[in-house]
């Protein structure tokens, strides 16, 4: 059964106030076209989660679509802090449930395995833990190991309503390949109640069956498949295209202030009808062609 739908329909299936896990990591494999459409449709009150914050979360927070961020921290690396997230925290406009990369992936893993909690050595003795202990209902607790008697910190599983995963290849059933490092994406997708796959290339199921060891997300977990090229732009998709340094610099500059960020949104999100309009605006095929990855390098 085909699950291929237009982006607008997949986005419309995300209910206001729901918990959305995002597949991005800093400037890699962020579902940007998805985020833009969420903003255009005016969906609000979201909780977004991911191990390390990406531009996907930053733009959603900047546009006022998000009430709460659950992550292990994060920045864009050398191109600076996620300004919209930082600003929203500093102005007290955003709930934060910040832990660490491993804490996040253990919470997704516990959710994916159907476990009630997961022990972890991280966070002990830190102020991150003190902050998490203030959260109600609790997300951390302590427990004695029934075998050794040793005390352990335990974390609550994370079970997002939907994971939105940006992938290079998928078929119409949603069987999805990811190439390159997976960061949290497998545990994230498998802990979520359902998955929306945003794929750069739509391939046949025969193609998937030819190399099934690349499949990270089997189709039975997937509710929608959206086929859109360059839908992670300006972030990268390993083996297909590089991140767009100039556009990320533009985003970094504009997102530093509230005014600059609304100018950016007006131009690149509200100022276009859809993803095709966005691709034309950022330079069209002539520009996008310069980002296409060298098959040896993968970028």
């Amino acid at each position: 059964m085909t699950k291929v739908t237009p982006l607008a329909d997949a986005v419309a299936s995300v209910l206001p106030g729901s918990h959305v896990a995002l597949s991005g990591f800093a400037t890699a494999r962020c579902p940007m076209a998805f985020a833009h459409e969420v903003i255009r449709q005016g969906i609000k009150g979201l909780t977004v989660s991911q191990c390390v914050a990406g531009i996907d979360a930053d733009i959603l927070v900047g546009a006022g679509a998000v009430d709460k961020v659950i992550n292990g921290g994060g920045s864009r690396g050398r191109s600076g802090q996620h300004s919209c997230i930082v600003r929203a925290y500093e102005e007290g406009k955003l709930d934060s449930e910040e832990s660490s990369s491993l804490s996040m992936v253990f919470r997704y893993l516990a959710g994916a395995l159907g476990l009630p909690f997961i022990p972890i050595r991280s966070l002990q003795g830190s102020d991150i833990l003190k902050r998490l202990e203030q959260i109600s209902p609790p997300v951390v607790s302590r427990l004695n190991d029934p075998f050794s008697g040793e005390e352990w910190l335990v974390l609550k599983p994370l079970i997002p309503d939907v994971a939105v995963v940006q992938v290079p290849y998928a078929d119409s059933e949603g069987n999805a390949w990811i190439l390159g490092p997976l960061w949290d994406n497998e545990e994230q997708a498998k802990s979520s109640k359902r998955v929306i796959v945003i794929t750069e290339r739509l391939v046949s199921t025969d193609e998937i069956r030819r190399d099934p060891s690349r499949t990270v997300i089997p189709g039975f977990r997937v509710s929608h498949v959206v086929h859109l090229p360059f839908s992670a732009h300006p972030t990268s998709v390993y083996d297909l295209y590089d991140f767009d340094v100039k556009h990320i610099q533009l985003y970094a500059k504009e997102s530093k202030t509230t005014d600059g960020f609304s100018t950016y949104l007006d131009e690149y999100v509200y100022g276009v009808d859809d993803h095709w309009g966005y691709l034309d605006l950022v330079g069209g095929m002539e520009h996008l062609n310069t980002l296409i990855a060298d098959p040896v390098l993968g970028y």
């Binding site: 390390v52 802090q81 930082v86 500093e90 660490s100 990369s101 991280s122």
Partner: peptide, 15 residues
Amino acid sequence: RRFTGSGGGNDIASS
């Protein structure tokens, strides 16, 4: 003023 946070830093410092 907020900055990057932990990422894997706390995990590495712990283990």
